[in-house]
Amino acid sequence: MLIARNIKKSFGKKRVLDDIDITLENGKITTIIGENGAGKSTIIGIISGFFFQDTGTVQKSTVSVMPDADSLFEDMTGKQFLKYILEIKKVDYKKAVTMAETFGIKKALNKKMCEYSFGMKKRSALFKLI
């Protein structure tokens, strides 16, 4: 369960979020829809801890966020990156390799991530979250 209440956020003089309330339930798919600049990424950034709200509260447990695919550690191979994230998350590497097969990224694990296609980067980013 994630509850955000009365979230306000400005970048400089520009108010991006004004009194936003949001409740996300576990096991449910929730979509945030809005125009460019409506503040969708900002609210996700606040939930993830990338940004700080000016006012309001966020109650959450663990949150997994898939950042932009272009922000992967490009000098690492897929395997190095996977081991790195798993070690921080304290997850078994062998289990992850089995899962990598399902995601279709096992063969690419020995390649540097800067050589990945955009789709492969997206899949890798998603895989590391799960």
């Binding site: 663990t62 997994s64 950042p67 922000s71 992967l72 550690f73 994230i85 980013a125």
Partner: peptide, 12 residues
Amino acid sequence: KDQSLRYLIPII
């Protein structure tokens, strides 16, 4: 700058 830190912030 390359936002790779965003992979770490939510988990540590």
